[in-house]
């Protein structure tokens, strides 16, 4: 089913229970509001401090960092080449020689998990960044100009959201092919919508703010208002959403590759490695466990990162727990 789970809009956000009559507690951000704090640097420090308080996010940052470094350095750290075969030692369980075992063609599973991670993570980040670009442009145009432009763009966005994403991916992917570039492109087509909606919402409210009106009164052109005055204020929510999109994109790539519509063998990706394990599931389960675990850990880490970033950058949307 389409990944509603990683749709940031669905990550319901609750404010802590309002306790009436507890004044005397300076609200967070109170100092800034009073004009008592120094400039942007302090804001950044505050955000970092809030992020550090989120223990799971900090742990995830470390783990995800290690995963990214290891996979990016796959050609250096991997014990073998990803197409290197040891035919006589096919389907061997994990051992001193092959930490994660070998697959049907006698290839080292650890090596392929590292190389596969490289593809999976690059696709995830690529999709998230491309979606950020498209989503921000569409959302900004819709929110800033409003009126008919807004209506048309948002109808289109809603229609795209209603599309059964996986079917769309399969059909379009089959038409366009399945190189890494195409897969990023196709996934972007179904991932930009949440961002467009969030950016639009931000623009709608920010464009009514006094500082924007002041800029307008001073004769600033639309472009300048968008880029200098509004966009910098939407960086927080955009960053949070993009992070969560990385997780969604990694999952979707894995799903597509699993079905055979994504990254094609022999280039490994976690999704096609898991698919490849199906034939030997009962005899060589390590072919499933290791890419599977890598995928789960990565996705959890990215989700926690997004959560921590929300606490840090978007404190008005803090979750209740």
């Amino acid at each position: 089913m389409p990944d509603r789970r990683n749709d940031p809009l669905e990550n319901r956000i609750l404010l802590p229970a309002e306790i009436s009559d507890t004044a005397g507690v300076p609200p967070e951000g109170y100092l800034e509001a009073e004009g008592l704090s120094a400039e942007v640097l302090t804001n950044r420090q505050l955000a970092w401090r809030r992020f550090r308080r989120h223990k799971a996010a900090m742990a995830s940052l470390v783990i995800f960092g290690i995963i990214v470094i290891l996979t990016l350095l796959a050609p250096v750290v991997a014990p073998f080449g990803f197409e290197e075969q040891f035919i006589t030692r096919a389907l061997e369980p994990p051992s001193r020689d092959f930490w994660f075992g070998t697959d049907r063609l006698g290839r080292d599973v650890l090596t392929r998990v590292l190389y596969g991670g490289r593809v999976s993570i690059l696709v995830g980040i690529g999709v998230a960044l491309a979606s950020a670009l498209i989503g921000t442009v569409i959302g900004a145009i819709a929110g800033f100009f409003g009126g008919r432009i807004d209506t048309i763009l948002m109808r289109f966005t809603d229609a795209m959201l209603a599309l059964p994403a996986l079917v769309f991916l399969i059909v379009v992917g089959r038409i366009l092919g399945s190189s890494v570039f195409i897969i990023v492109l196709v996934l972007t087509l179904v991932f930009w919508m949440p961002l467009a909606r969030i950016v639009r919402g931000q623009f709608l409210s920010l464009k009514e703010k006094e500082f924007v009106e002041a800029a307008r009164a001073l004769g600033a052109k639309s472009g300048r208002i968008i880029f200098r005055h509004i966009l910098p204020n939407t960086v927080g929510p955009i960053t949070v959403t993009v992070t969560l999109l990385v997780a969604g994109a990694i999952l979707s790539e894995a799903t597509l590759s699993f079905l055979g519509f994504g990254i094609q063998l022999p280039t490994p990706s976690w999704g096609n490695m898991i698919a490849d394990s199906r034939g030997q599931l009962t005899t060589s389960p390590w072919m499933l466990w290791f890419p599977g675990l890598a995928l789960i850990i990565t996705v959890i880490c990215v989700n926690f990162l997004g959560d921590g970033l929300r606490d840090a950058l978007d404190p008005t949307q803090r979750k209740s727990s």
């Binding site: 990683n6 799903t255 995928l295 959890i300």
Partner: peptide
Amino acid sequence: LLGIATPVFLVGLMLQLVLGV
């Protein structure tokens, strides 16, 4: 969180392996 991070094909294969085989 674990359930949300685990794609359905992975859950399916693990179930086949553990509860099936």
